[in-house]
Write a protein that binds this DNA or RNA. Structure first.
Lengths: 190, 190
DNA sequence: ACCTGAACACCGTTCAAGT
DNA sequence: ACCTGAACACCGTTCAAGT
């Protein structure tokens, strides 16, 4: 398939420096961190940043792709350890907490689950959707999840809970309340 | 109290033109609409915009203050027409739908319920929080709402549901599902 | 008292020139 | 093949000059 010729040594060095600096910058200043600043801090011209990462989303995704993959793997682990319903609840918990702790990841998750967005067909989006699908389908077979919920709904709602939690800033009890509310609402009608 | 001297005729004219144009611009381009463009379309210098509305939030709030007030009034109407639990559910429905339909209102609601934000002590924020408090307390007395939920939680969660719904873009059934999930989750534990 | 618009600072993006 | 950084466009914000 897509024959990936190895990068030239300097290109690869720049690519990796950019990723490292970008992760720091997003963590520090949020998803809107200055791209020019990232290039400067990485010691490269701004054009180089654009050559490697044509859009802000591309950089965001590259900087966090390993965390996304870890979350997808975690879904499968939980699916093996716990009954389907509990696995989904626990995964949602970790997903929401993780999304809030790592600034910038929320917007990445968001664009991955936006309908009609070109970014929706990214590796990270597909990864997450497949992971969610496995947990969702198992829980629905078991009867512990509302049957009208689609995998992508779960991801969107996690994004919503993360957004609500951000509004609570320092309030640690709020996020716990919001996640529990989400998982309660996901249970089938009484 | 704050003695409000009437504005000079030209100042008042500009103020009103700015509000009208701003509402249009926010509806068209979202909360990030260009302020310079708003000033130009209103036929005033950019300095005039800043004189009347020192921050983007101030303009946003002024443009939508009537809608916010209508929502607060609506809360009381529903409180008289329906049993407390149903009133809250119906109000949340209208709040979420209204927030999604009017672009720009979501960020206004968001900043109104952000902890530690200076904007939290705005007229619109207090208005909404008081309206929510009346419904929340009544429903909790009735026993149809989880006792650990605070009025501000309800507003933050509505904001979260609106965010999740935005990700679904055109999907009309998604928002219904997300709101129903929120109201289900708000019911006391079984 | 209020308005105007030039001036400034900042940021994203492109591209000609360089290696 | 890749990098650099000047150049451009755009936006928010301030403020001296004008009425």
């Amino acid at each position: 398939m897509t024959q990936v010729r190895p990068m030239r040594a300097d290109a690869r060095r720049n690519y990796e420096r950019l990723l490292k600096v970008a992760a720091e910058a997003f963590a520090e200043h949020g998803e809107g961190a200055s791209l020019d600043d990232i290039a400067k801090r990485a010691g490269v011209g701004s054009g180089t940043l654009y050559r490697h990462f044509p859009t802000r989303q591309a950089l965001l995704e590259a900087a966090y792709v390993d965390r996304i993959e870890a979350l997808a793997v975690r879904a499968d682990e939980l699916g093996e350890e716990l009954p389907p319903g509990e696995a989904l609840v626990e995964w949602l918990n970790e997903l929401c907490v993780g999304t809030i702790q790592v600034r910038g990841m929320k917007s990445l998750l968001g664009s991955a689950v936006t309908d009609g967005s070109a970014a929706a067909v990214t590796a990270c989006g597909t990864n997450m959707k497949e992971a969610a699908a496995r947990l969702v389908e198992a829980a629905q077979r078991e009867g512990t999840l509302r049957p009208d919920i689609e995998p992508i709904d779960v991801l969107r709602l996690a994004h919503g809970v993360a957004t609500a939690s951000e509004l609570a800033k320092g309030d640690r009890s709020a996020i716990r309340r919001y996640v529990s509310l989400l998982t309660e609402g996901l249970r089938p009608a009484r």
